[in-house]
Design a protein around this nucleic acid. Structure first.
Lengths: 214, 214, 214, 214
DNA sequence: AATGAATGAGGTTTCATTCAT
DNA sequence: TATGAATGAAACCTCATTCAT
């Protein structure tokens, strides 16, 4: 009856927590149902986590870690923005298929408010925001990307598109919305191609270089 | 001690509900605290709404109505996509400043799951998805917009950018994230200008029309 | 909109109260539903009665009054016990058919406890208990009824049978029970005849007067 | 602070429930007060019973079981009606002294209405109604009991007297009423003797067999 | 004087957390 | 150490009662 605790079990617990929190939110999820679905007793949860919120945060960071390692992998091979936009899109598609609840969990935190929201944003978005901004600034000054842009805002738009793509693959509401737009779930390859086309144009077209203008 | 009920009071109640639900979600919000903050008794809430969920839905629709009338106003003057992208952006900025909690409320429902999520999406996103897609298809076939695109997906990307912009003005997490990207809250006019530039290029640049290509 | 109050309205209110209290009991009945069914506002109820319990008592006494006047009428023509047992049975049958809720209301008070129960019993049962006991004692000493009995207890048994008969005509549970015993609701005349036969034997047969005995 | 649950505790809980429901009825009783008086937390009640009504039914069946086993015991030694009327009366007296609240609980359900009342009656009264009716029919045809009677109705009268006796021992109102009739609580033996006398005459006297008639 | 909307105490029920085993 | 039954605070909701109109 007593099961030895193990790192694998912890993984199970966190994954179960992510699954349920991602669906029902911090308040909607119940500790008992998480414990049951994870195959442990509630006591175990409270042995490792002080309370529900603490456990929620642990689940949050667990899912963020997996997201972060995804990003790390893609961005480790330093490259130009457009060169690895494709890698990024594919990675997100693959990750969304494998770990939809991690993305949904990430979506949950975007609903948080107050100072915690501020801190989470700094913690989570700091890396990519700096990376994207720098890549765009570099590309812009090297001539690979257009010059008439605010690198920060364009990085922001860029990440916005990627975030929404992830949500659209994982969250029920966004999924339904994408199907509404496309008349069914579009092929990964079509999305990849079109989004790249959208991004490339947005980043490389420079009206000031076009002869006549408006 | 008894206060006469009035349409203004109903408005107050719904606005209070939106505020609290938007912050804490359906499960996190308490009817008692909503009643207190709205300056009515719980009894009033239950006189007009069958239960918490019913009231939640009423708040939801109240905020959606205000969003919809915003969109109606802008889209009523039928125009080309790029022409009123500017109108749209400005309208969203103004709306976000006046009714941030309505946007947050909208964000809440994007966390819902299952069949309700599907229905809500159809109800809420149907209008704009069809409008955007048509405008893009029209522009594309008339030559005003590029031809090498999937109108549905480009409409989808377009709306994604607008949604994220709204959230970034209203939801604490997204707000912090935007500040992170921009090093502080950017001027509305800068955002407007840059997003238009981003959109215009994405929609009008047609690589196939450029002499040399990659 | 404002209706003049009248004695007839008071009668309506009490009858409605009796109907609903009889079915659901003091705690199960709601003032609002009573007011609605009586066609008055709750305010009227609280104008004439201090609170729910007070109103309940008023309903109680109203139904007891009608029961009492029934009894008064039958017992006014002073007679021997067996002579008006028949009158009593018929009167109860007729009353039960006309005012079943009054009987059910009476049944409600038998569920009360503590000192109030004691007082109600004294108030309600005093009359008939003294009457029956005296009649039996008289009959017993005059030789019309058997001599080997305790008049009080026989009066008690006598009234018990009549009470249960009333309940069996009016209360759902007792009604179902009587149907269970009889395979359907028996004719009034059969019940009358059989109960009289039961009572007559019980009251007149005197074993000590029979030659041999058991 | 945590007390281990046990069958004895369950018994306590049910007995407490019976006590309070018997006094105040389903609607009048409060789960909190039941829990407190039973020495458990409300949570325990809701762990074992889905809701108040479910718990009420459990209490009901608990008290009916004890009543039924009483009846089973007496009726198991199959005998003639009058022979075990005495056993029955004594058993009821003893049971009433030991478990007055079980009788009061039984009395509560006789106040129920609608289809549930019908079902409860069938469930509870079916056994004894068939038994009594059969015994009387047998006795009647064998000559041990009089022949000029409707067995079903006489069984019904018989059970009515026994029911009222129980109530008179246990329910405050009926208790006060019996004292009113008897000028104080009569000795068990007196009641036994007189009720038997009442019953015997009612069941054995056959006017048609008496020489002179009326 | 009658109305019925508003009140809010109190009832039912849930569930995060504790702790005896 | 792991368990999960017990706890009880707090949430949802009802309805007796009040009182402005």
């Amino acid at each position: 009856m007593l099961k030895k605790f193990s790192p694998e079990k912890l993984e199970d617990i966190l994954e179960t927590g992510i699954e349920i929190f991602a669906d029902k939110g911090l308040h909607g999820a119940g500790m008992a149902s998480i414990a049951q679905q994870a195959g442990v007793s509630v006591g175990v949860l409270y042995k490792y986590y002080a309370n529900k919120e603490d456990f929620f945060r642990a689940c949050l960071h667990h899912s963020l870690n997996s997201l972060e390692s995804l990003l790390q992998e893609v961005t480790s091979r330093e490259d130009k923005l457009l060169n690895y936009s494709r890698q990024l899109i594919r990675a997100l598609q693959s990750f969304s298929a494998r770990h939809p609840s991690h993305i949904r969990m990430y979506h949950q935190i975007t609903a948080s408010s107050g100072e915690p929201a501020r801190q989470l944003a700094a913690e989570i978005e700091g890396l990519s925001s700096r990376l994207y901004t720098r890549l765009i600034a570099d590309g812009s000054s090297s001539g690979a990307l257009r010059r008439d842009i605010d690198p920060a805002l364009f990085a922001f738009f860029f990440d916005n598109l990627l975030m929404m793509l992830q949500f659209s693959y994982c969250c029920d509401y966004y999924k339904a919305r994408m199907e509404l737009y496309c008349g069914g779930m579009p092929e990964d390859s079509l999305v990849e191609e079109q989004l790249l086309r959208f991004l490339e144009s947005a980043f490389t077209f420079d009206r000031s270089l076009v002869p006549h203008g408006d």
